[in-house]
Design a protein around this nucleic acid. Structure first.
Lengths: 140, 140
DNA sequence: CCGCATCCGTTCTGATACTG
DNA sequence: CAGTATCAGAACGGATGCGG
């Protein structure tokens, strides 16, 4: 079990040398980063959104997201489970069935996440326009 | 200028085979993903937050974030600039001075982002507890 | 049906050194 | 001070095959 499905996450970039003196204001930045990188994870956001509707099965999620590979979905779900954002319920039937559902914590997170998603959809055009403009200028 | 400071971003995972039939509901997921991955970018969130206070200089930002390397800060700022979220103002003085500031678009984004950051800080303890618990069980 | 493990290419990151 | 170039190591991500 050496390589496992390496979650890796980010945990902490490990606080820098002791010689440094970050503003106390930003002392918690590292910790926050580890939470945000879960959210920032491309797939996590989608999974959280999909699960906002209610519990889903593995392949149901896979189908909904559709661009995701099995591996990444497994990894994402594990990460979410690890962080206490989703629960994993196994029904030892044949064939097996596994349901994923948001915890209260996860449901709380889904609100800001959906706000972000909403914003993203509304301003998508503007951003893409800006991107195109920028790229055109850059290609000197 | 071959390797440059490769931005790479994500742009689009490129939509899958045409044989697939994702719910129309998720047709725009890909586009949203490219926006979210900017937000999800560990550093982007911090930069946006820092800039929420007002314009900042390059090294000022570097100092505030403190875990970031010069390279990553440059990359992050470029990406943000590309997306039309921040402006870059150069003062051709000696020594040179460059100010970064949120655009209106960026300021709009900073609201949901800060909500997310706020949530992250408030629930950090719960998440870390869940993580520890999970890891302890995993280390069979 | 659910999910773990391995191979293996691609991408990201940090450290360092060099310009204007 | 602000930024670029380069390189080597780490992490990510997908495809495939196996097992409960």
């Amino acid at each position: 079990m050496d390589t496992l499905l390496k979650p890796a996450h980010i945990d902490l970039p490990a606080s820098p040398r002791s010689g440094q003196r970050p503003d106390p204001n930003h002392a918690d930045c590292r910790g926050v980063a580890s939470v945000l990188s879960r959210v920032g994870d491309k797939w996590s956001v989608f999974v959280i959104m999909m699960l906002g509707d209610g519990p889903k099965r593995f392949n149901e999620l896979k189908r909904m997201i559709n661009g995701i590979s099995q591996r990444m979905l497994t990894l994402t779900l594990r990460g979410l489970e690890r962080d206490g954002l989703v629960t994993r319920t196994i029904f030892p039937t044949i064939p097996p069935r596994v349901d994923y559902e948001l915890t209260d914590l996860g449901r709380g997170l889904s609100r800001p996440v959906e706000a972000l998603g909403k914003w993203a959809m509304e301003h998508l055009a503007q951003i893409e326009a800006a991107r195109t403009r920028f790229d055109k200028r850059g290609e000197h």
